[in-house]
């Protein structure tokens, strides 16, 4: 990945959902779903956003798409802010950022034929005029996702889950996007179909130079297609690194716990498992200090009072939000107060 301006920059993104209660609907509390998330994605790059369910990773995706309005922070596409654009000015930019959702059943309108589903973005952005041109574009989209052309007259319920996900990908490709946000795009599929879709996505990335924001809870899948990985916990990024660095030399105890939960297809393999106890704390009232301190096996006094900031650790581009310093052997030692 060479330098230059990133395609997408996310800077200090926050989304706090108000909780209204009472007759008058006064705001009684907030859900801190996303609380200061920053990252960038370069052209043709895949960045994976991983974390447990409820950590805010989908909210990040929806905030970038402006399906929900972010509370604070900036989102820039090619240097231009898109988080505060009025709807009318945002519409032409929507062409460049598209989305593929998790559930292949609810992400396609059951009452529309594949032809109409794929033609909708083409017509909206004026990318195809006239019946013939639209048909041609739709047919070439079907080729791109390796579905038979003659299936365009069918309804979504006549396809299998993997095939529907291909239709979802074709719809995201239709306007010629630069960035596709895959929100758990393969999580609902069987293992074999998952592999097909992951391979399709990386083929398309090579072919079209797409950037992907791959939101997932499954590190095993992420390892196969990502360039960089960002790990989220309770609305914050706790670690961000190149794929090889993260999988070999992760720093944050939460990342290590996630990695140790990835199944290894070798019954003889011996490894240290980090089993986390308890549940994810409520994002309504996140823990003080480090948000992970309630479940961290290496917690010490400083973690409870001082919130760790993302700081460079190890190789270039590897950042982690943890007070611990790792000794070369992989052991951890508390870092003294600064």
């Amino acid at each position: 990945m060479s330098g230059g301006q990133p395609l997408l920059e996310v800077d200090g993104l926050k989304k706090h959902f108000p909780i209204r209660s009472g007759v008058l609907g006064g705001v009684s509390a907030h859900v801190y779903a996303v609380d200061g998330v920053s990252f960038d994605i370069r052209r043709g790059e895949t960045l994976s956003l991983v974390g447990e369910s409820g950590c805010g990773k989908s909210t990040v995706g929806k905030s970038i798409l402006r399906l929900i309005e972010p509370t604070a922070g900036e989102v820039r596409l090619d240097g231009q802010r898109i988080d505060n654009l009025p709807a009318g000015q945002l519409r032409p930019l929507r062409r460049r950022v598209q989305v593929v959702f998790q559930d292949p059943f609810s992400s396609l309108n059951p009452r529309m034929r594949v032809r109409d589903i794929l033609a909708e973005p083409l017509r909206n952005f004026g990318l195809a005029t006239g019946h013939g041109e639209t048909e041609d574009r739709v047919a070439s989209l079907m080729d791109k996702v390796r579905l038979p052309r003659d299936a365009i007259g069918r309804f979504p319920h006549e396809f299998s889950g993997g095939q529907r996900q291909r239709i979802g990908i074709a719809r995201a490709l239709a306007p010629g996007a630069d960035l596709i946000i895959c929100d758990e795009a393969v999580s609902a599929l069987d293992v074999s179909v998952k592999a097909q879709i992951v391979n399709l996505l990386s083929d398309l990335q090579d072919e079209l130079g797409l950037a992907l924001l791959f939101i997932s809870h499954d590190l095993a899948i992420v390892e196969h297609l990502t360039h960089r990985v960002a790990v989220m916990y309770l609305g914050k990024i706790v670690e961000l690194a190149e794929r090889s660095t993260l999988f070999a030399r992760s720093h944050h105890p939460y990342t290590r716990a996630l990695l140790s939960a990835v199944p290894v297809p070798d019954p003889e393999a011996q490894r240290q498992r980090i089993i986390l106890t308890g549940d994810v704390p409520s994002p309504i009232n996140p823990p003080s200090g480090c948000r992970f301190h309630t479940r961290c096996p290496f917690v010490f006094d400083r973690c409870r009072v001082e919130e760790p900031l993302l700081r460079p650790v190890g190789k270039a581009g590897h950042i982690s939000a943890c007070h611990l310093e790792h000794a070369p052997g992989g052991e951890v030692v508390p870092q003294p107060n600064a």
Partner: peptide, 26 residues
């Protein structure tokens, strides 16, 4: 709140068309 409606918004479909094509038929 259905993903296909959100996908339509992301595809640049305007509100009246979303109501007419995605909400009313369902």
């Amino acid at each position: 709140e259905q993903p296909y409606v959100e996908a339509a918004i992301a595809s640049g479909t305007r509100v009246p068309k979303i109501i007419w094509r995605h909400i009313l038929p369902n």
